[in-house]
Nucleic acid binder design. Structure first.
Lengths: 149, 149
DNA sequence: TTTTCTGTAACCAACGCAGTTACCGTTTCG
DNA sequence: CGAAACGGTAACTGCGTTGGTTACAGAAAA
């Protein structure tokens, strides 16, 4: 449990939605991830705010993809979670030092570009693409288990 | 103070080294960052292991760039710190669920590609480039302070 | 009206990280 | 030689983030 696993949880849950189709309850999603339903609801709450999924309360409620899986990009999910990838140290600046005065805007610029590049990378992959990869790798995983002595 | 600020601390300290030249003590670097010398030594210890800086103990000791600032890339610094950008959730898999079985290798692949892209982005900038940016931004910062009413 | 959902608050435990103190070994310099 | 000035490291603290959990209110379907 180091770092932020919310993107992993989100993609896991969304892949479940992609495969099952229609409404799926947080409890069902949680069983696949092996976690608590509230954890799923926390993450999927953000996804709902960003229009990636729809939620409905009440009996037979749950979450559903707001669009087709081919129309949802990993970059959207990434952005929805507002994962902080880099952090600028929050120490006060030493006014006697030139470096100390210019470092923060410089770091902010560098990190902003890096975030932009990450976003572009994630833009390449749709949820449908990712789900396909998951199933292929699940097959390989399964075969590996079968042939193990 | 959320996330990992070690990359920020490293780049800050390295920029100080670039400007001052020669050996600089952890105590002096720490004053620019406004932090404790041990924090600097922890980060610079990793940089020394990766051959980015040299350290020498004893009187008049300290840290110095191992190469010219133009020959050191931010990507090297990034790699030296082994900052974990993304995390795969560590929950056990639900063997009854196909998604649960294939998700981890799929996420590992996705995140590895993302890390690769980040590395390539950081490869574009040398320490000398970065230091130049810092000084320009320090000037602007200074001017902003001067004209403030 | 009962059941089954989400939404949310509240709390706990685990973890990572910055900060700090302290001490050892090493190197320079008087 | 001995004092002074370094880095390396261990140990401890405090704080913030996060995941897990329980509990409960409100909503919707049966």
């Amino acid at each position: 449990m180091s770092g932020n696993a919310q993107l992993a949880v989100a993609l896991h849950g969304l892949t479940v939605l992609t495969y099952l189709g229609g409404r799926v309850s947080s409890s069902k999603i949680a069983k696949s991830i092996n976690t608590n339903p509230v954890v799923v609801r926390r993450v999927f709450g953000k996804l709902a705010e960003s229009g990636i999924v729809c939620s409905s309360t009440g009996k037979n409620g749950g979450f559903a993809l707001a669009r087709e899986a081919g129309e949802i990009r990993v970059s959207e999910v990434f952005k929805a979670l507002e994962t902080r990838t880099f952090t600028v140290h929050s120490n006060d600046r030493n006014q006697a030092c030139m470096v100390s005065c210019g470092i923060k805007p410089a770091l902010n610029g560098l990190f902003a570009e890096a975030d932009q590049v990450l976003f572009q990378e994630f833009e390449k992959t749709s949820l449908a693409d990712f789900a396909t990869r998951v199933s292929k790798l699940a097959d390989e995983e399964h075969r590996a288990v079968m042939t193990r002595d």
